[in-house]
Amino acid sequence: MTTTIDAAGDAMTASPAGGPAIVTRGLTKRFRGGQIAVDHLDLTVPRGAVFGFLGPNGSGKTTTIRMLLGLVTPTSGSSSILGAASPVQALTRVGALVEGPAFYPYLSGAANLRRFDAADPSADPRTVGRRVAEALDRVGLAAAAKKRYRAYSLGMRQRLAIAATLLGPRELLVLDEPTNGLDPQGTREVRNLIKDVAAGGTTVFVSSHLLAEVEQMCTHIGVMSTGRLVAEGTLTELRSASVPRIRVETPDSSLAAAALTAFGLTNIIPAPGEVSAELGDALPERVTAALVREGIAVRGLQVVHPTLEDVFVHLTGEGFDVEA
C-alpha cells in the first residue's frame, strides 16, 4: 500500500453510497502488554457482499470488529464503515453482534430490544413496537417475547442478539460468530436469514471459525492468522487459487508415477494402489490417454479440487510457520 493513513482516511470520508462498506488501512492494535492483536490490516468489504471473516480463535477477528465499531481505539491505521468519518456517524445504519449476546437478565426479550432501540438516536419511537415484534418474529422468538431474558436458553439468547441487529433498516450487519450456541437447525435458520438480509441489499460482515458455514453463504472471504490478513478475495478467486490434483487408482503405482512425471506433472505422491499429482493446466483426458498408452492399468481416475478447508488450514498453518 502506497497510500498514507491520512490519504486513506480522506478517501474514506469521501466515499459515496456506492463505495466499499468497510475499509481499513494499516489497522493495528497493540494491547498494553505489547501483544499485537491486529497487525497492519488492509481490508476492503464491497457493498452488497456477504463477507466471511475467517480465522482461528485468537487471530484478531473480534478486535478488528471492535475497532470497526469504535469500541476499541486502534494503535495506528484507520478504518471506516459505510463511508463515514467516525463509526458513531454510521452505526445507526449498522446492526452489530459482538462477542455473543449481552442483555439485562431482569427484562423480557421485547423490553431488552426496546432498551437498545432507545439508545439509537435515529430510531423512531412511534414504530418501536412494530419493529421489535418483527425482529423477534424473524428470529423465531415471537412466542418468548414476554419471557425474561434470564429464562432464555443459550440458543434463544443468540437469536435475541441477532434480532437486535435487525431493529431498523440496516446497510451493514456485523455478525461476530452468529451461530455460536445454536443447534444445527438454528444454524441453518441463521444462514437463511443472512441470505435473506443480503438479498435485500444489506452488506453482511460475518466472522466465523467454521469454514463450512462461510462457504455456504459468503460471496467474499478474508482469512486472518495471528493478526494478519493472509487472504482476501471472492470465494471463486480463493477456490481457483488452489490447484486441482489428479488421483489415479492403479495397481502399478510406481509405473504410473513415472508416466505422470514423463507427462510433466509435478508434486507426485505415490501410495499403495494409487498415485496423485498436481494437475495444473493439464487436461485430465490427455493424462488418461498417456497412462493408457504406457499400458498402465487404470482402475479409477479423479480430479480433486481442494476444499476451502484445505485452503484455510493451508493459509493459517502457513501463518504460524512464518511467525515461528
Partner: peptide
C-alpha cells in the same frame, strides 16, 4: 458494547 454500537454515543 451494545449501547455504544446502537449508537448511544
Amino acid at each position: 458494547r451494545y449501547l455504544l454500537t446502537a449508537p448511544a454515543g
